[in-house]
Simulated scan of single mutants.
Amino acid sequence: MTLSAREISWSAGGTDILKEVSLTLETGEFLGIIGPNGSGKTSLMSLIAGIRKPRKGEVFLDGSPIAALGRRAVAQRLALVEQQAETGERITARQAVELGRTPYLGPLSPWSPQDDAIVDAALRNVDMGHLADRLWHTLSGGERQRLHIARALAQESKILLLDEPTNHLDIGHQISLLDLVRRQDRTVVAALHDLNHAAMFCDRIAVMQGGRLVALGRPQEVLTVERIRAVFGIEVEVEQEFDGSCFIRYRARRRQPRPFSAIAAVGA
Rank of each mutant, 00 (worst) to 15 (best):
V214A: 03
V214G: 00
V214L: 02
A215M: 05
A215K: 06
L216V: 08
L216T: 03
L216R: 03
L216W: 08
G217Q: 02
G217C: 07
G217M: 10
G217V: 09
R218S: 01
P219I: 08
Q220K: 14
Q220F: 11
Q220A: 15
E221C: 10
V222D: 02
V222Q: 02
V222E: 01
V222H: 06
L223T: 08
L223P: 13
L223C: 06
T224M: 01
T224K: 07
T224L: 02
V225S: 03
V225I: 13
V225R: 14
V225W: 00
E226G: 00
E226W: 04
E226Y: 01
E226K: 09
R227K: 15
R227T: 05
R227F: 03
I228G: 06
I228L: 13
R229I: 02
R229W: 05
R229S: 14
A230G: 06
V231H: 08
V231N: 07
V231D: 07
F232W: 12
F232I: 04
F232V: 04
G233A: 05
G233H: 10
G233V: 10
I234Q: 01
E235R: 10
E235G: 06
E235L: 01
V236C: 06
V236A: 04
E237R: 15
V238S: 08
V238Y: 09
V238F: 11
E239L: 15
Q240E: 13
Q240Y: 03
Q240N: 13
E241F: 09
E241K: 12
F242E: 11
D243L: 10
D243C: 05
D243F: 08
G244R: 11
S245F: 04
S245I: 04
S245M: 05
C246V: 15
F247G: 02
I248N: 08
R251I: 14
A252Q: 07
A252L: 12
A252N: 07
R253W: 06
R253Q: 09
R254Y: 00
R255H: 11
R255P: 03
R255M: 12
R255V: 12
Q256A: 13
P257Y: 07
P257E: 03
R258W: 12
R258F: 14
R258G: 03
R258C: 09
R258M: 14
P259S: 06
P259V: 11
P259T: 05
A262V: 13
A262Q: 12
A262M: 11
A262G: 00
A262L: 09
A262E: 15
I263R: 12
I263Y: 11
